[in-house]
Structures are given as structure tokens and as C-alpha cells.
């Protein structure tokens, strides 16, 4: 009797320890709390309501990109073209407005462009057999080149109808609520639902975790990978539409650097670059954490040119943290196995 209660006790403790150390979403939450505490003591203005509100509002574009990136990372790929795709889709929506198309048609055109770029990535990877890294790097080149040639380097302007101010979040929807917040929530529900509760989502995890295993189980690996890239292309398009509204003009370099932020946010949120692991909630918290860190250094007065260094540093730290959590979880599991076999520690 005594031994069973002892065993039960031990497994409960182990379970809590395992969860805290292993669950990446809890890890990023801890990091976020840490940043907030750090800020609360040094810079009370950080915890100011309007600062926090701005911070979350500013993180939305990266958040949407990070959610799309998470889908690709889970399925074992990586999408380096996500930032330039966003810019290209912003350009498409703006140009379509200038061309005289109605708003919904302009938005549809942007989404179609995003899906098309995703499909292109998927085809380069599955049909030509290019590595994900190379294919999407090439797509980054194509997309930004097309946008430059098309705009001749001059930002697209003159498309800002009142609705676009709402889409960009410049005009709030109701009270403090902005449309980008609603859109980010919708994207989260859709992508989170797909990853967690659908066949397609299971196939994303399966392909990312073991391509041969998935193939032998009858999963059509190429199609699944293509789907993942289409989702990241669509996420880029959604982000691009918001950016077109928020920025009020579309310069050719609108998307520069966003791929790094998207990858960083996804990885902070626990997505593994080796595939098979990642959560939408993690990407959301990751994007907010990233925005909080950037916000903090802005408040401290560090020049904004240092931002990229900070983002790079956070990316390295996040990958290390993921690896440490994997090692710790392995050890915990090993110890648990020993305990079950009845070996005293």
C-alpha cells in the first residue's frame, strides 16, 4: 500500500516537473513573465496599459506570419519567403484597389497571390526535389524581384480607402478592439483547429516527424508538404493585407526581415526546426515575447538599429532553450523508467 502511494506521489511530481520543463508553451510563458518582471522593476512605463496595448497590436503581423510558419515547421519544412510574400500580397491588394477593383476583389487577389506563392514553393520542393531552404530562398528572391520591377522602387500609394484604415487597425473597430486583433484570432482558431483536430493536421505532424513512416502509412507526403506551404502563403497574404492598411503605402522592401521574426517567434513558441513539433498558441506567445523584448529595448533608449541583433540573439537563445528542454525531458523520462522498474535513485 505504502509503496503504491509513494509511486503515485512520485509520478505526480514527475509529471509536474516534466510539464514545466518540457512543455514549450509553458516555457515561453515563463520567459514572457520574466521579461515583464524585469521591466516592471526597471521601467514602470513598460507595464503602462497603453504601452502593453501597443505592444500586442504591433506584434499581430509577426504573429500571423509565425502561425503560418509554425504549420510549415511542424510539417518539416521552413519558409524563408514568408516576408517577401507578405510584401508582394500587400502590393497586389494595393494595386488592385488602384486598378479600380472593389475591396473584396482586391483582398481575394492578395489571398490568391499568397496561395500561388505557397503552391510555387511546394512545387519547387516536391516536384523538383529542391531542399526547402533553397526553394524558399529562391522564392524570396523571385517575389522581392517582381515587386521591385513592378513598382520600379517607388512605393505604391493612393489606395487607402476608409475600410483599409480599419483593416490596418489604424481606425479601431469598437473601443480598443481593432480588426487585426480579430483577424489574428480567427487565423489562430483556424490553424490551431487544423493542427489539433483534423486529419490534415495529424498528417502535418506525421510528415514532419518521419517522412518514411508517414509514407509507409499511406500518407501522401508530397501533397501534405504542399498544403503546408499554401497555408503559410495564405498567412503571408493575410498579414500583407493588414500591412497594406497599417503602412498606408507599399514600398518594395516592406517584408524585409519579417521571415527572421516569424521563424524566431515560432521557435520561441516551441516549434522544432527538425519538424514534428510546434503549437499555434506557442507562436502567439512567441510573437508577443519578441515584441515585448523589442519594445523594452526601445524604451531603454537603445537605437532601433540594434533590434535585429536582439532578434538574432533571441533566436539563438530560443533554439538552445528548446534543446535543453529536450535533454531534460529525456532525463526525466529515463528516471521515470528507472523508478517504474524499481531501482532506487
Amino acid at each position: 500500500m505504502e509503496t503504491t502511494s509513494l509511486k503515485k506521489n512520485q509520478t505526480v511530481v514527475d509529471r509536474v516537473v516534466t510539464r514545466l520543463l518540457v512543455d514549450p508553451t509553458l516555457g515561453v510563458l515563463a520567459l514572457l513573465v520574466l521579461i515583464c518582471l524585469l521591466a516592471a522593476f526597471t521601467l514602470p512605463v513598460f507595464l503602462n496599459g497603453s504601452n502593453l496595448y501597443n505592444l500586442v497590436n504591433n506584434s499581430l503581423v509577426v504573429m500571423i506570419l509565425a502561425m503560418g510558419m509554425t504549420v510549415v515547421l511542424v510539417s518539416g519544412g521552413i519558409d524563408l519567403s514568408i516576408g517577401t510574400t507578405m510584401a508582394l500580397c500587400a502590393g497586389v491588394s494595393a494595386a488592385a484597389m488602384n486598378f479600380g477593383l472593389p475591396l473584396f476583389a482586391a483582398l481575394l487577389a492578395a489571398l490568391a497571390m499568397g496561395a500561388l506563392v505557397g503552391l510555387g514553393n511546394g512545387l519547387l520542393i516536391t516536384r523538383l526535389g529542391l531542399p526547402d531552404f533553397i526553394a524558399t530562398l529562391a522564392m524570396l528572391g523571385f517575389a522581392s524581384g517582381v515587386l521591385y520591377i513592378w513598382t520600379k522602387g517607388v512605393p505604391i500609394i493612393g489606395y487607402m480607402v476608409p475600410e483599409f484604415y480599419i483593416i490596418g487597425g489604424l481606425t479601431p473597430l469598437a473601443g480598443p478592439l481593432t480588426l487585426p486583433m480579430v483577424i489574428a484570432l480567427l487565423v489562430a482558431l483556424v490553424l490551431g483547429g487544423i493542427l489539433g483536430f483534423t486529419r490534415m493536421g495529424t498528417h502535418f505532424f506525421a510528415v514532419g516527424s518521419s517522412k518514411t513512416g508517414a509514407m509507409q502509412s499511406g500518407v501522401r507526403v508530397d501533397r501534405v508538404r504542399m498544403q503546408a506551404y499554401i497555408f503559410s502563403g495564405l498567412a503571408a497574404a493575410v498579414a500583407g493585407i493588414i500591412m497594406a492598411g497599417r503602412n498606408t503605402n507599399v514600398p518594395a522592401d516592406l517584408g524585409n526581415g519579417y521571415e527572421i521574426q516569424a521563424i524566431a517567434a515560432a521557435v520561441i513558441g516551441g516549434a522544432a526546426l527538425s519538424g514534428g513539433r510546434g503549437r499555434i498558441l506557442g507562436a502567439i506567445l512567441g510573437a508577443i515575447t519578441l515584441a515585448a523584448a523589442v519594445n523594452l529595448i526601445n524604451l531603454v533608449g537603445v537605437p532601433s538599429s540594434y533590434q535585429k541583433i536582439v532578434i538574432g540573439g533571441i533566436l539563438v537563445a530560443a533554439v538552445l532553450a528548446n534543446r535543453i528542454s529536450a535533454i531534460v525531458s529525456g532525463k526525466v523520462r529515463q528516471r521515470k523508467a528507472m523508478v517504474l522498474e524499481g531501482i532506487p535513485a
Binding site: T202, F205, A206, G208, S209, S210, T212, G213, A214, Q216, S217, G276, R277
Partner: peptide
């Protein structure tokens, strides 16, 4: 093995 390590037994 044709199992996928990241998925549960059921999946």
C-alpha cells in the same frame, strides 16, 4: 519502423 515518433499510439 513505419511509426511516426511524434504522434500518439492512437494517431
Amino acid at each position: 519502423l513505419s511509426l511516426v515518433p511524434a504522434l500518439t499510439t492512437l494517431d
